[in-house]
């Protein structure tokens, strides 16, 4: 599981970890029953407080995305349906950030929609471009 945290991001770190897990589910790099890294390993690789990782895992468990199996670790929940729940949720989050960014620049929704459609048309057939970032 690849996670990149941004400290300039307005989202708290535990939310960024939650979004990274959701994004893994949407892309298919994380599947039902897959193990997540241990709290110790993930906090060590991200250089964050282990409690932040625990907080993210606990919130994901409340949302039904992961299951904590005592003594075994944390796993993606067997019944998770990324297409129904995680995808729209992640899309809303990305849209919310885009809207906030637009508003900061003094732009309104129609400006943003027009630019998005044009960009999408320009890059047609290469829709995965954004993934390479």
């Amino acid at each position: 599981m690849k996670i990149r945290l941004s400290h300039a991001d307005g989202r708290p770190l535990y939310v960024q970890i939650m979004d990274a897990v959701r994004s893994g589910l949407v892309r298919g790099t994380l599947r039902p029953q897959d193990p997540l890294p241990s709290v110790r390993d993930l906090s060590s690789s991200l250089r964050v407080n282990p409690r932040t990782v625990s907080q993210a895992y606990a919130a994901l468990e409340r949302d039904g995305v992961v299951q904590v199996r005592h003594g075994k670790g944390t796993f993606v929940a067997p019944g998770v349906r990324p297409e129904e729940k995680e995808r729209p949720r992640l899309a809303r989050e990305v849209a919310r950030r885009a809207l906030a960014d637009a508003s900061r620049s003094g732009l309104a929704l129609p400006d943003l929609m027009t630019a998005l459609r044009e960009l999408d048309r320009d890059s047609h057939g290469d829709g995965r471009k954004e993934d390479g970032r």
């Binding site: 709290v39 110790r40 906090s43 060590s44 250089r47 964050v48 407080n49 282990p50 409690r51």
Partner: peptide
């Protein structure tokens, strides 16, 4: 420095 932060994270977990 980076290694130290990683060590501190693990220390806190352990």
């Amino acid at each position: 420095r980076d290694e130290t932060l990683s060590i501190l994270s693990e220390h806190l977990a352990d």
